[in-house]
Design a protein around this nucleic acid. Structure first.
Lengths: 214, 214
DNA sequence: CTTGATTTATGACAAGTTGTCACATATAAT
DNA sequence: ATTATATGTGACAACTTGTCATAAATCAAG
């Protein structure tokens, strides 16, 4: 987290620093980026930097938090439009989300983020479907409340949250794969939907309906 | 890949270098590890290092390849013992694999590897179920040949390979999560099996059999 | 407005990193 | 014995990072 000092800064100076950092992180990974370049870009002295941020990571995770898609809203919208249907809701959400990330003006930043994504970055980039870190949300405002749970095998709320989280991890993994393999938006969306299909309906066939092996 | 020069070295010297590198990588991530420390550990001059390896990454991926579990064999064994059953075979395999990684004498190395795993490391650490990089394997020697495909919805061989690959990614992701959350071997195995279950049988319930919402 | 307290800004610096290169020393081949 | 060829070496330039003494700006209050 940036220090209070950073937030006390004039808007102009904050923006200058963020722009300078985004420039660096748009062409370099967290590890390859250098504070030296960022302070040069931003015309800020090295000493000042360390008064705002603990280190490079601190700044990086602040930027991820700042620019990541606010997808709480999108998830809500998606599931409501699809009447709470698990598969259709997530399909709707995932496709929109992938499109946002891969067509963003911050493409370079996201590309580098996903190309070097590890567990920690994944956690920072991802929404918490249960919002454990924040205060308890009122009934009906949680994502879980807008999903038709009767469709799912899961009995307890905890289990439902587990599966929701897993799909979000899978979504991030799929986007990562999309960047690595230089897939198009459409190809990445298809890959996500294919996997969502597997998880929703299973990969094993129902024994009774098919028995014609040739 | 190490240079020929490295392989020409006396076994003693190779081992010394590998040991020195493993020492460093057992307590540090790829990024935090330093060549300076490795050459100091190994009593090898800095100049020599660069005659054996292109850079730190080159050495690291060589070590991953060298010490990763040879799980081709384990996969074969697992699926054969479970009569080619998709779920039971993967369960068998995954549980053994997790146990191997998390109880290995190279725990520190694997821990750091998984704690900082990204797409590239994942690819290096993982077996290729199709062995595209190697020469074509004879019929019956490929992993896909020992799986009962009639159980699966997938029609084409390519689709089957896709799902096999996805499970392997999921397995690595689960181990990564296990390290981050400091789960026990048993907890990590359970997490894997739960997810395997989801993917095998789906998370949506069969509409006909349950309709008692209270 | 002046004085003193608090906050913010600065860049030189030590201590570390990487990759290279001219040169030294083995080892092999004729 | 004399060339080739292969291997070994550490000083070096060019970068990092985080700190710290010091300077400047801002605020508070008599």
């Amino acid at each position: 987290m940036p220090t209070q000092t950073f937030f006390n800064l004039s808007e102009e100076k904050q923006k200058r620093l963020i722009a300078g950092a985004m420039k660096e992180f748009s062409s370099k990974s967290l590890n390859d980026a250098s504070i030296s370049n960022i302070v040069k870009n931003s015309k800020i002295s090295r000493g000042s930097f360390y008064q705002y941020f603990e280190d490079k990571k601190d700044l990086y995770f602040y930027l991820i938090g700042k620019f990541r898609y606010n997808y709480r809203q999108l998830m809500f919208k998606s599931f409501k439009e699809e009447s709470g249907d698990f598969y259709e809701g997530y399909k709707h959400f995932g496709e929109k989300y992938i499109k946002y990330i891969m067509e963003s003006e911050k493409f370079g930043f996201f590309e580098n983020m996903y190309m070097h994504m590890n567990y920690q970055i994944n956690q920072e980039a991802r929404v918490d479907v249960n919002h454990t870190s924040q205060q308890k949300l009122p009934e009906g405002k949680r994502i879980i409340d807008v999903i038709d749970r009767s469709q799912l095998k899961m009995e307890t709320e905890k289990e439902v949250i587990d599966i929701l989280r897993y799909i979000l991890s899978m979504l991030n993994d799929t986007i990562m794969e999309g960047f690595w393999k230089e897939l198009s938006v459409n190809e990445t969306q298809k890959l996500f939907v294919k996997r969502l299909n597997w998880i929703t309906y299973g990969v094993k066939n129902n024994k009774e309906e098919e028995e014609e092996s040739r």
